[in-house]
């Protein structure tokens, strides 16, 4: 197994992105046995402890200016998502309009970070969002199950990138991971990363979906996080949203801890994206508190933290209005797209 490709987006320390690995980690990815040894050498995660900590932090009380800041920051971190079999160009165009201008009555509301669609709708989204600064994320690699031949997965990715996706949300092969074929998962992430390279223009950012609901244990989440970081994922993402449980606070804690430790070790900043099941402002604020206090203040940025969500945005907008207007107006005052 080769060291991860460093051809793309070589980043200086302390900037988001990937880059060459320090010597300690180059050893870890030398071959499959080293990789396994490294992943099993990571400290375990105590379930009771991490759940207790997550519940404790969730009691933080965020009010007034701090709440408004959190709402605006959360809006700017939303990957506005539609991943339905029934998706049409019309639906995607309407979602893009929402992404550009989330609340027509309040032009100062920040734009969302990206719109997230299936690969065949990337072109529509790219056309709608040109020049707005809103990214287009495409799921790829036989999302959501990941059960396909690697050639299909890579073609899926390449087509999405060619269509103009600025971000690719891939799924890992959970079957391979659960049967202990870590090298296979690692190589596949590397291969997808390579498929994100664009000859003209910046490479697509790679988000690696771990599907933590299928990994089941926090130890597995930690190992999968490190595996994805080692293989060059720009973001680690909890879930596809198609499996229950999707994102949870304790799982996100473990992943935030991983990117934090990764930064301590390599100087590189990588991101985290919880996805699925985050529907209310209250939830979003709890996640931001975890970002703030577990990973650190640097991660309070759309470059390093995203919410994969659809209905969350409207709740954020309603709560934003409540903060500004002093009363709650209700769901009829925000646009449903």
């Amino acid at each position: 197994m080769a060291a991860p490709s460093t051809t793309s987006s070589a980043a200086s320390p302390d900037t988001p992105g990937t880059g060459p690995l320090p010597p300690a980690l180059t050893d870890a990815v030398r071959d499959e046995a080293s990789l396994r040894r490294f992943l099993f050498g990571l400290p375990g995660v105590d379930q009771v402890g991490v759940e207790q900590r997550a519940a404790g932090l969730a009691t933080r009380s965020i009010k007034k200016a701090a709440k408004l800041w959190a709402i605006d920051t959360a809006i700017s971190m939303v990957d506005l998502t539609t991943l339905e079999g029934a998706d049409t160009p019309g639906k995607v165009r309407s979602l893009c309009a929402k992404a550009r201008r989330p609340d027509p009555d309040y032009p100062d509301v920040p734009r969302v970070a990206a719109v997230c669609v299936y690969p065949d709708l990337v072109e529509t989204a790219v056309a709608e969002l040109a020049g707005t600064g809103v990214g287009v994320a495409s799921v790829a690699t036989a999302f959501p199950s990941g059960r396909a031949n690697r050639r299909v997965k890579l073609a899926d990715t390449e087509l999405a990138v060619r269509a103009g996706a600025t971000e690719v949300d891939m799924v890992i092969d959970r079957g391979a991971f659960l049967s202990g074929r870590y090298g296979q998962v690692f190589e596949e992430i590397q291969a997808v990363k390579a498929a994100c390279v664009r000859e003209h223009g910046p490479d697509a950012h790679l988000k690696v979906i771990l599907e933590t609901g299928e990994l089941a244990t926090y130890d597995n989440v930690r190992r999968a996080s490190w595996l994805a970081l080692l293989a060059g994922g720009d973001f680690i993402k909890t879930s596809t949203g198609k499996v229950s449980p999707a994102a949870t606070l304790p799982v996100t804690h473990v992943m935030l801890q991983a990117v934090h430790d990764w930064h301590r070790l390599t100087g590189q900043l990588r991101g985290v994206k919880p996805a699925g099941g985050i529907r209310t402002t209250k939830d979003a604020v709890r996640y931001l508190v975890a970002v703030h206090e577990v990973a650190g203040p640097e991660w309070l940025s759309p470059h390093l933290f995203r919410f994969g969500a659809s209905s969350l945005l409207n709740d954020l907008l309603m709560q934003r209005r409540t903060q500004l207007e002093g009363h709650y107006s209700g769901p009829d005052y925000v646009t449903v797209d």
Binding site: A65, W69, H292
Partner: peptide, 28 residues
């Protein structure tokens, strides 16, 4: 206070570690 860095409010005693956090929790 929305956009102010931690430094401006760092002397309240109600804050945590001084640092460069863009997010000061309002008193609750």
């Amino acid at each position: 206070a929305l956009a102010s860095p931690a430094g401006s409010a760092g002397s309240t005693g109600a804050t945590g570690a001084p640092g460069s956090s863009p997010w000061e929790y309002a008193p609750a």
